Amino acid sequence: MTRDSILTTLALVLVGGLGGFAAHLLHTPLPFMLGSLVATALSATLFARAIPEGYVFPQKFRLIFLAVIGVMIGAQVSPDLLDLLPAMLASFTAIVLFVGLAHGGNYLIFRHVGGYDPATAFYSGTPGGLLESIAMGEAAGADIATLTMQQFLRIILVITMVPVGLSIWMGAPVGSASGMTLAHASPSDFSHVHLVVLTGLIGILIGKPLRLPAWQLTGPLFAAAIVSSTGLGVLDLPNWMISVCQVVIGASLGMRLGGLRGRAVLRGAGLGILSVGLMLSIGLAFALVLVRLTGQPIDVLMVSFAPGGVTEMALVALSLNANPALVTAHHIWRIILTVIELAFIGRYVQPRTL
């Protein structure tokens, strides 16, 4: 990295941190990631001339923080959760149907209402697998700026609408807006940092060769799940460290949205609302059916089907006194199914011809 690139990255992280802190004061869902994303995207658009030509946010730097988030999610997997999985067979099966219905409906929205080209519509409509959708969409010739915008709008709308809706329904804040966190350590407790780092490193080393979907995140996640579920160690970090990770990830993602103009964003937001409305309706329908089959409350099932950020949905689950790892397991399964679908269709069908 050049000196200019390093200084630009540090400046973007600082801007992202300020945006995250502002969002935290406003009690928004997933404040440090969303606040950082919005602040960085605005800065990249308004002050584009200040960013060196050809600058790209360093992915190896970002990888460190993605791995930490993966470890902290995987750490929620416990023996008690594994005991619950057989009883959730019906909901796991329903997610298979959910992915197909949601993706098909979204494609129709983006293709025929939005007028996007086939590849852009196809990859914009995936109900998960954000990084894979962007990477595969770019390779398939999709409009990468539009695709990135729609994917982030999906997450932003879901992790905003679901916690806000549940907060209104329950009469109290839920999710990160209620102060929930995946961390349990005190701000000055660094006793488990070495194990978190080691677990994340092992996850990265095994995730890429195994070609896991979103291996930067899921490799450490699965490694942490093994450590946590088998009792090999305790994986925990102070909450401020996790917030820093979210700021860096948000800043890197915000850079991808820099340069989009108001009309394109408004159009994308309208399509995003239609898309998210469709997916939440499908999820609610499945939740209503699964209440009797699984014995789980409808709000927990609804969160398990909401196609938003894994971390925020886990935090919402905490607010509902539900096992966050159980909700996370549904979302990981949704993401894996989506990536498998993308890989199959991308190989045998060619989305640009749909």
Rank of each mutant, 00 (worst) to 15 (best):
S43T: 15
S43I: 02
S43Q: 08
A44H: 10
L46Q: 00
A48T: 13
A48P: 10
A48V: 08
A48H: 12
R49W: 11
R49V: 08
I51E: 02
I51H: 07
P52L: 11
P52D: 02
P52W: 05
Y55T: 05
Y55F: 12
Y55K: 07
V56S: 15
F57S: 09
F57L: 10
F57T: 13
F57R: 03
F57H: 01
P58G: 09
P58D: 13
P58E: 01
Q59T: 11
Q59R: 15
Q59P: 11
K60A: 14
K60L: 12
K60Y: 15
F61C: 09
F61Y: 14
F61A: 07
R62F: 04
L63A: 15
L63G: 04
I64W: 11
F65P: 03
F65N: 01
L66H: 10
L66D: 06
L66W: 11
A67E: 08
A67R: 00
A67I: 08
A67Q: 02
V68A: 07
V68L: 14
I69Y: 13
I69W: 08
G70S: 07
G70L: 07
G70R: 08
V71S: 00
V71R: 04
V71T: 09
V71K: 03
V71N: 02
M72Q: 13
M72L: 07
M72Y: 01
I73S: 08
Q76S: 14
Q76N: 11
S78Q: 11
S78P: 11
P79D: 10
P79A: 02
D80S: 13
L81F: 09
L81K: 03
L82R: 07
L84Y: 01
L84Q: 12
L84W: 03
L85F: 04
P86K: 05
P86E: 05
P86D: 05
A90W: 10
A90C: 06
S91G: 09
S91K: 10
S91W: 03
S91P: 07
F92R: 06
F92D: 05
T93N: 08
T93G: 15
A94C: 10
I95N: 04
I95V: 13
V96F: 15
V96P: 08
V96C: 13
L97G: 15
L97T: 09
F98R: 14
F98C: 00
V99W: 07
V99Q: 02
L101K: 11
L101N: 09
L101P: 04
A102E: 02
H103C: 03
H103W: 06
G104D: 07
G104I: 00
G104E: 04
G104K: 07
G104N: 06
G105K: 08
N106M: 05
N106G: 02
Y107Q: 00
Y107K: 00
Y107P: 00
